[in-house]
Design a protein around this nucleic acid. Structure first.
Lengths: 187, 187
DNA sequence: CTTAACGGAGGGAATGTTCATTCCGAAATC
DNA sequence: GATTTCGGAATGAACATTCCCTCCGTTAAG
């Protein structure tokens, strides 16, 4: 990935997560990236493609802490907890990325390919889930329902924290994790 | 509320939930509402105000089935279940409204007043929550955390259903409700 | 009862701005 | 010197918003 390309993606992330799509002209992205407007079009077909590729890139990044949580627990519950904690922490440390993802999560201009590429990054979690179901630790729910109590829950709680609605200190954090665990654990 | 105003809001809902904000010109809204572009500006200050008012109106509408669920259960668990079922059904029957709400849920152009107005409509649920905590049926979590397992969960699962990702038949529905109940119920 | 004056809502053409995108000369790289 | 990449002025389309003319209902005067 060229350096310019990275600069453009970074600038897009920063500007769009704060100002929204319709309020950030390509010219502004170019300026922020120290690049001419024309250069953007050398790397991305158009504005929509730029958003889509950024979306995929961010999904990839966020899957890393999820993955890292995988190897840290022994029991299913410990693994669940580690994934939650690590991903939550990542969301706080990279709030722009999380905000962008949540903002365009169900937006009309994400293409089907983007959605597909996105799904790729969930496969590590799928393994955890299937093992947990097989071993009787987890309820046998649809995988997407399980994902809700991981990714959606994490992102929502990170946003609540960032907006100052709930201060997610250690107490609240373990409370949230416990609630989600209660939701998915088998009885 | 004037007839024209209602027509404009309806047209806006339909067009924007399908095409997104930046892809639906005021002129198109006007055409869909059988109204001149100028007429829109007689009822709403500008495009952003239109979106904001539509958002508030939809939050009001969706709070009705929630409310209706309140009176149908005896135990906290029954009330929880009724709220979930009714609201979920409403989301399926009014998917455009739900999609619009989810799409602009965390969008840069919702004003603070809009967010405040929105919070109003949660107060009936707050009562249920507080009673449940007092009686020891519910975990003593922050209210917004509780709301996550109601509204956010409902909307997400409705979307999964509408996208064909999970077919939410009675089995899956009660499974989802059970999971959310397990999350919030005290142990 | 008729008609004239008024006021306000509706419509839509016109305006001016704001971009996305292009394109070509300049700079850099090989 | 050739080839690729870059920049940014220029272009053209799209669109939010305005402005003013039209239409209609209401009221007042005759």
């Amino acid at each position: 990935m060229s350096e310019k390309r990275t600069a453009i993606l970074d600038a897009t992330l920063e500007l769009i997560s704060q100002r929204g799509f319709h309020n950030t002209p390509m010219s502004l992205i170019a300026k922020e990236a120290n690049v001419g407007p024309g250069t953007i079009y050398r790397n991305f077909e158009n504005k929509e493609a730029l958003i889509n590729q950024l979306f995929v890139e961010l999904k990839r990044r966020i899957s890393e802490p999820m993955l890292a949580g995988l190897s840290e627990g022994r029991t299913t519950e410990e693994i669940f907890q580690q994934i939650w904690r690590r991903t939550f922490q990542y969301c706080l440390n990279h709030s722009e990325e999380m905000l962008f993802l949540e903002q365009y999560h169900n937006s009309p201009f994400l293409t089907a390919e983007t959605e597909a590429a996105t799904r790729e990054y969930q496969t590590p979690i799928l393994g955890v889930f299937q093992n947990g179901v097989r071993s009787g630790d987890l309820k046998d729910m649809p995988f997407e329902m399980f994902i809700f109590f991981v990714w959606t829950a994490i992102a929502s709680h990170a946003q609540l924290h960032l907006n100052g609605v709930i201060i997610m200190d250690e107490d609240k954090l373990s409370q949230a994790i416990q609630a989600c665990w209660d939701a998915v654990k088998s009885n």
